[in-house]
């Protein structure tokens, strides 16, 4: 990438941030994350004496005494799970508009008239969007990690890894949003499809059970194809929780197959964008 292309790509990323600020997307997201951090900070009172819990109370109710590290990891695992799905839903809502805005008539022509390749235009917008969401996810995860660490003295790195997984899955879903934006110029359809993926993948994750329930071989084949092709959002969540709880990860297949799905979808989006007339 030469200097001019780098400048142009950096300008597109900065513009995505500026638009996210102007549309209050960034601040809305930031506000939700701050509210969640304040919630964590004030509802949870933990007194640690010599590495064990003297008292633990949430909403003023005492909890049974337990090992500090265990409790923190369990809580972090729950928060990571909530963040993973709820944060992702928020991020999808926020990003769909940011992507489709670029394809608006009167705006896209001016962008395409500049000496920047369509690939760089689309990837710049994609990267800007990922960074907007990443900034908030990192703020939330690192913020809650610090709160837990200060209150309990437990500083496990597993919880921090959950932010990377969340950003990774968001990037895959954003690739879907980009593809639909290029094909249909519709943020509403993009939201519907990504939500459908978020709903269908926990069902597909029960592949073994479903295979037993299905009577015909062709329907089992359809199930297998869907399972292997579509992103494994639910299973990646399981991997995140294992990492937090320091449990071994049985298979990384859900991660790499999801990454392939995201890369292929994004590549199709770029290819279609290059061929499209505006």
């Amino acid at each position: 990438m030469n200097g001019q292309t780098f400048n142009a790509t950096a300008a597109i990323i900065r513009d995505t941030f500026r638009e996210a600020f102007a549309r209050k997307i960034f601040w809305g997201f930031f506000g939700c994350c701050t509210a969640l951090l304040l919630f964590l900070m004030f509802i949870m009172r933990v007194d640690v004496v010599a590495g064990a819990l003297a008292t633990v109370s949430i909403f003023g109710n005492s909890l049974p005494s337990t090992n500090v590290q265990n409790l923190v990891q369990q809580t972090q695992s729950v928060i990571a799970g909530v963040l993973y799905y709820a944060g992702m839903a928020l991020a999808v809502f926020a990003s769909a508009g940011l992507v489709s805005a670029v394809f608006e008539p009167g705006r896209i022509e001016l962008l395409l008239s500049k000496p920047v390749s369509r690939t760089h235009l689309l990837l710049g917008r994609f990267a800007g969007n990922v960074l907007v969401v990443s900034a908030n996810i990192l703020y939330l995860v690192i913020g809650s990690w610090i709160i837990f660490g200060v209150k309990t003295g437990v500083w496990g790195a597993g919880f921090l890894l959950s932010s990377l997984c969340t950003i990774f899955i968001f990037s895959v879903l954003l690739a879907v949003i980009v593809l639909i934006g290029v094909l249909l110029d519709s943020s509403a359809v993009a939201i519907m499809v990504t939500f459908a993926l978020m709903i269908i993948t926990p069902i597909l994750a029960q592949k073994a059970t479903l295979e037993r329930l299905l009577s015909s071989e062709w329907s089992r084949d359809v199930l297998r194809v869907l399972y292997y092709v579509l992103p494994k959002i639910w299973e990646v969540r399981g991997i995140v929780q294992n990492l937090i709880l320091n449990k071994p990860v049985e298979s990384w297949m859900p991660v790499w197959s999801t990454a392939i799905f995201g890369a292929v979808v994004l590549a199709i989006g770029i290819w279609r964008f290059q061929r499209r007339s505006y």
């Binding site: 400048n7 142009a8 008539p105 705006r107 962008l111 000496p115």
Partner: peptide, 23 residues
Amino acid sequence: NHRFPTYMTGWGMLEFYGALSGM
């Protein structure tokens, strides 16, 4: 029928398109 991004200022818009033009 241009639709310049309304969140930009006049200055900011020229900054953006100037950068895209390789300046």
